[in-house]
Computed example of a mutant assay.
Amino acid sequence: MGVMERIPILELKNKTGYELPILTFEIDRTLISRFTAAVGDGSPRWQTEAPPSLIPALGFDRVYELLASSDEVAVLHGATEVEFFQSVALGDTVTMKARIASARERVSGGKTTVFVNVDASYSNQLNEPVAVCRQTAIVTSK
């Protein structure tokens, strides 16, 4: 995966509707085992399918990279809303399409904070919907 374009904090409020590059993820044993180890969920169920909480985690490191335009900017997780349509099996390929749904800027004490809502949809290799997700990121100048 290449480097994503970074959006400067002062331009975020003008980026509603911006579509991020499409990302694709192979759901393999390594990805699942790393995730389940990180969250401490050793259920035998995850030998054949991905934990649902893995899906909204896919790709958001890239979204945060896009929003962290410089060392002077901090990106914090604000909220996650997700709706699941079907499970994802080991061996599936999941495609993430995401866009900036809204960005609201607040300036206080000389510091800029932007609340960015990113909407993402996830589909499998059959182009069937797997989940939709809205994540809120809080982007602040340090």
Results as ranks from 00 to 15, higher is better:
Val3Met: 15
Val3His: 12
Met4Phe: 12
Ile9Val: 03
Glu11Cys: 08
Lys13Tyr: 01
Asn14Phe: 07
Lys15Asn: 04
Glu19Phe: 04
Leu20Ile: 01
Leu20Glu: 02
Pro21Phe: 03
Arg29Phe: 11
Thr30Phe: 09
Ile32Ser: 05
Phe35Pro: 08
Thr36Glu: 07
Ala37Val: 10
Pro44Phe: 08
Arg45Cys: 10
Gln47Phe: 08
Glu49His: 12
Pro51Arg: 11
Leu54Ser: 02
Ile55Pro: 00
Ile55Trp: 00
Ala57Leu: 10
Asp61Lys: 13
Arg62Ala: 10
Arg62Asn: 12
Tyr64Cys: 13
Glu65Gln: 15
Ser69Cys: 15
Ser70Gln: 04
Ala74Thr: 14
Val75Lys: 05
Leu76Cys: 12
Thr80Ser: 14
Thr80Tyr: 02
Glu81Gly: 04
Phe85Val: 06
Gln86Glu: 03
Ser87Pro: 08
Val88Ser: 00
Ala89Phe: 14
Leu90Asn: 02
Gly91Glu: 14
Asp92Trp: 01
Thr93Asp: 03
Val94Gly: 00
Lys97Gln: 06
Lys97Cys: 05
Ala98Val: 04
Arg99Asn: 05
Ile100Asp: 02
Ala101Cys: 02
Ser102Val: 01
Arg104Ile: 13
Glu105Thr: 04
Arg106Asp: 07
Ser108Phe: 15
Ser108Tyr: 14
Gly109Cys: 11
Gly110Glu: 04
Gly110Thr: 09
Gly110Arg: 02
Gly110Tyr: 07
Val118Ser: 09
Asp119Ala: 11
Gln125Ile: 08
Gln125Pro: 02
Leu126Trp: 13
Ala131His: 01
Val132Ser: 06
Lys142Asn: 10
Lys142His: 10
Lys142Phe: 09
